[in-house]
Design a protein around this nucleic acid. Sequence first.
RNA 1: GGGCGUGUAGCUCAGUUGGUCAGAGCCCCCGCCUUACAAGCGGGUGGUCGGAGGUUCGAGUCCUCUCGCGCCCA
Length: 848
Amino acid sequence: MPDRPSLDGIEEKWVDVWDESGVYHFDRTRERGDVFSIDTPPPTVSGSLHIGHVFSYTHTDAVARFQRMRGKAVFYPMGWDDNGLPTERRVQNYYGVRCDPSVPYDPDFAPPAKPDPKRQVPISRRNFIELCDRLTAEDEKVFEAIWRRLGLSVDWRHTYATIDADARTAAQRAFLRNLARGEAYMSEAPTLWDVTFRTAVAQAELEDRERPGAYHRLAFHRPGGEPVHIETTRPELLAACVALVAHPDDERYQDLFSGTVRTPVFGVEVPVRAHRLADPEKGSGIAMICTFGDTTDVTWWRELQLETRPIIGWDGRIVAEPPAGLETEEARLAYGRLAGATVHTARERMVEMLRESGDLVGEPRPITHPVKFYEKGDKPLEIVTTRQWYIRNGGREAELRGRLVERGRELTWYPAFMRARYENWVEGLNGDWLVSRQRFFGVPFPVWYPLDAEGNPRYDAPIVPDESALPVDPSSDVPPGYTEDQRGRAGGFMGDPDVMDTWATSSLSPQIAGGWERDEDLFRRVFPMDLRPQGHDIIRTWLFATVVRSEFEHGSVPWRRTALSGWILDPDRKKMSKSKGNVVTPIDLLEKYSSDAVRYWAANGRPGTDTAFDEGQMKIGRRLAIKILNASKFALSVAGEDAAADPAAVTEPLDRAMLAALAEVVEDATSAFEGYDYTRALERTERFFWDLCDDYLELVKVRAYDSESPAGASARSALLIALSVLHRLFAPFLPFVADEVWSWWQEGSVHAARWPEAAEFRSAAQGGDPAVLAATAEVLRAVRKAKSEAKLSMRADVERVMVSGKSAEYARQSRADIAAAGRAAALEFETTDEAELRVEVTLPAAAE
RNA sequence: GGGCGUGUAGCUCAGUUGGUCAGAGCCCCCGCCUUACAAGCGGGUGGUCGGAGGUUCGAGUCCUCUCGCGCCCA
């Protein structure tokens, strides 16, 4: 035990000790019932670890530590999400390169010494992936170091990355089984498309953003020539117009239904149709349907069985070839002015042409409206018809949807109201899950297609590998029955060029971490997992997708509980984010306040509740940690480090009262933890501890030094019992300081110790009444107040203390301790019926 | 527009099933060298619990309406 205990260097010391002792290792000999398994969220390593991560991972760690102390074998792995677009972008910027699959592999490639993000060097897909692997490996080391310093009790032998071979194997195996069972399918259909990243995007990745736009009033022409006015925010799509639509009940357009009109400028004849989704209140009540301007167009196109005349290409530009229907020379010339232009330019030119033809009525009317974006993109999404892979998720089948809602109800949600978010999402789905992405750094689809005699792929006859061959890369591996020289040749084969959505891999995190089909012995001990902690913003993606995959593969929920953490808000109540520049680096905070202090702040954030970033709370956490050091040192120096607590020696009413109060704290903290209310467990423990320091310790200080009397032995034993219990109660929250103080007088790690139970020290409490401690402390407070108001030192003598009231009887049982702590010469107690405890303190005349 | 959450001292937050529930910590003010801790200790000043109705003997605590903020979805 050091003379002057300190938090300095405490993290380095214990991180090493824990690593060497393996105290957090999962005992895989334990059966499922004795295991507590956690489906840890794999943080995106291409981003930086921010304070929000520290916040939520601390919550999980506290629960993991509690369960471990309760005797569970805790399966607490860590994953890294390195698969996907964020990593591609980071690699592009970091090395100044971009992936160009047409460039051949260069085994000697070295990235530019001075990366220039503006002039990225095109490199082969394989070189690009090598750089992704290299950079993510470095990032993961940094992350692990921070997690260790934060004190996460992860078993570092169990880590995974969403791009590693195990994850690729699991993702491909699950996909092949989905395919075989008909849960995955390929379809050519209108798809939300990000033109910057040139990839398809799923419903779950959409977000609406308010953008300026303008209503353009356009004149279409009836067969007789008289105009029909429509309003559109996307005049550039006029060439893609396939119909007009109005509400079936709209009186204004009854005569037009089942007739046709001609488009302005292009003179294409299009039908006028009726559909309930046409809003009579909006614009002129009649709209043009284009293939495709928005998702409503897709609905109309599908339900009204309209033609397809797409004009926007994968690059977001107007395609060179005019769509069907543009027959006249003028129409083709007009289209020629748009071909190759961006959407923005095309709109300007189209408006120009409409002005020339006189079909633009009035001036465009500026508005602000919500536009769909890919959440990681910065250009509006287009809708392009492409061939994509889908996994069923209930978006098209009520039966499956209902089953998935039911699975959600099998889960225990912390907090419970988060379940509503899940159900709202599932019930609002309008399509299956699009899982293919036209990107590079991801898990490839384990599929090849035969090429027919003309060299065209036969998508209806995909070739799949045997599961034993996984993972495969169809761009370099050869399908069964073919040779490499048949790649890309007529009569040969081609590999599917796409990769899976990153959620298609991370939705298998319980299987990947748990050893599904790789280590079945492990898997049956940990799956379904006990807990899925995660942010509430990814209920619709990660949580939902994981439920879907587990339903298909195992016919069960993937876990029993899920805990949704809140966000960290800056002092202005805004979500902290990099773009706002209000992010604080965790490592600086850990160094400034100590890991325990930062954990203390985090542990004060309740499940699902957004929490203010508050360094003040970290200061308090630091104070608490230091107090634990000092109070422990004091108690141990009084009692003797190697002294053993003897429950039978606890005889004084005040000591028994303290232990009885502590028993209540233990019971309360335990049930709070069982209900995932770690914050309450901490609050109760902390409250008790500070009161113990302020009152009980001061009261028994003198007596505890008395080595002669039984009263002294009583105090010392009670102190040691309380200390042991408190060290363990604090261990899940302040693991460093808890193990430090524990090590001064106990064998082994506090983190391997048994969680305290009231039964342990009930006998020592001997039916003690917490009211004795409460009343005694109240008298002590009154004495202090008198001294404080007289501006006296707490060491000042007191002539007389007169206590009366209902609980005077309780205080009387601590007469000697009050006299000693208050330095009171005379004490009188009068038990009356008065509810309020009255304390009269008489100070020596000289002191007044 | 629909769903969910939230609004309690200057700040951050507790307040289980309605009855010492008007609290804690921080901040601020006034004191105290008290050998565990001056990175400490003691004491004190702060609120008609967003607003309006209602149920009840009694409501931050239940109901209705309303205002503000936040998130999710259209």
